[in-house]
Design a binder for these strands. Sequence first.
DNA 1: CGGCTCTTTGAATGCCGTCAAATATTGTGG
DNA 2: CCACAATATTTGACGGCATTCAAAGAGCCG
Lengths: 249, 249
Amino acid sequence: MITGCFLLGRARDAMTQEEQQLIEDSIREVVELPPRKTLVRAGERIRTSTYLIDGFIGRYMDDREGHRQLVATHVPGDFVDLHGFALKRFEHDVATVGRARVATFDHEVLARINERHPNLTRILWFSTLLDAAMHREWIFRLGRLDAAGRVAAFFCEMEARLDMVKLVDEGRYALPFIQTEVAEACGVTGVHVNRTLKMLRERGLMTFGDGLVTIHDAVGLRRLAEFDPRYLYADSSELMLDARDDATT
Amino acid sequence: MITGCFLLGRARDAMTQEEQQLIEDSIREVVELPPRKTLVRAGERIRTSTYLIDGFIGRYMDDREGHRQLVATHVPGDFVDLHGFALKRFEHDVATVGRARVATFDHEVLARINERHPNLTRILWFSTLLDAAMHREWIFRLGRLDAAGRVAAFFCEMEARLDMVKLVDEGRYALPFIQTEVAEACGVTGVHVNRTLKMLRERGLMTFGDGLVTIHDAVGLRRLAEFDPRYLYADSSELMLDARDDATT
DNA sequence: CGGCTCTTTGAATGCCGTCAAATATTGTGG
DNA sequence: CCACAATATTTGACGGCATTCAAAGAGCCG
């Protein structure tokens, strides 16, 4: 395994041995990226897709005054730019948060997979649908929750997603974000994130500092965030098997 | 054409004659639905997908107190539940807004398409990616725009999407929403939507009442909304052709 | 040590939510 | 067709959460 990491982290269970091998053989190269390195700018023609092996990547949109909104975050095991295969252009920027290691795939090989491997295509499709499910959850949070709920939800989601790829150790996980970046994800100001973190700390729910998150009261934090991890479809293998039922019917 | 409407509205250009026919032959039935009819509830096992021929459909999530957030809206020509084919369960409800007419597809036939028609599969995949692009735009709006910007953006997006399927006549289009529903889409209260609409009216930007939207100053409205329609990929046929380039390379 | 970035805290402003009530519109049954 | 209820729209007053502006402290690196 040249990636040195679970390829397609969680989707892996749904894939056959050959499919896993095929994906791995399709990698063009593996690259190390520095922090805050922009991979794709809005409007550029995209010819490769990126798989995140290690580190964190964000998708950003700017308002007229240049204020950023983080519209998605990616954790190790995410096929970050898979949708670029069909969209060809993004309406947003893509950049690393901390340092990251990624594998790149040319669109020609994805086109070949699309052409010849319908089951694998569906798994890839599924992984882009997960992104959409997370988007919907964020729409809900930004529309209905106050700052505390949003910030709590952000850390709950990161915990749940990182846990799926074994990057959480007893409620603790590394997250190379600064408070301003959390703010950009939650649609609040950095100052207010700071106040909110203080409140979460004082209530004994969680702490965040130096790129390390520690969740002390997962139940309380999830209640504040109205967090229900089902939207992450952690039991995706079950669902994909369901899908195979359809196929053979 | 039994649907009496453009099938797959905008994606149609990217499809061959046979592909269009195949989709049409895959329809199980066409159904009329009353206003506020729930099609799918969160958590239910989904076995069919819905294509919206006529009317409007929304996707809803509720907070703990029962307040709704509209996380997506669908206009005629949208393949509303296509992602249900791979997800099998939703984390939200799906319901009509006004009355609607839909076509339903069994997942078995979608599985067959997935299995045997890679190009058509990619087009369907693409259409789910458009939903995700719209989700991202809404995340940006909810995170960065004030109430006026969000409400303006809502009407701008509806105008642009309905225009693609020829449902806009000189800046006027039918939209069977009440103010509360606009509020649920924009993450503000109904009362405040009312004030915002008054302001938009007084500034000569647009009017909304009795299910009819009239845009008087599209440029001004779009500026207020920071609206750039590129995220809707209206030139999708161009992009899909690009994709075919990859395939034949 | 000095400059940089990040975090933390305070004070004042303001946008939007909540509560409340009046008006307008739609729907229903007699 | 009217009466009445239910639903939508509109407007006002008040309060609170979050932004903005400002500045002080903390950590890091050359």
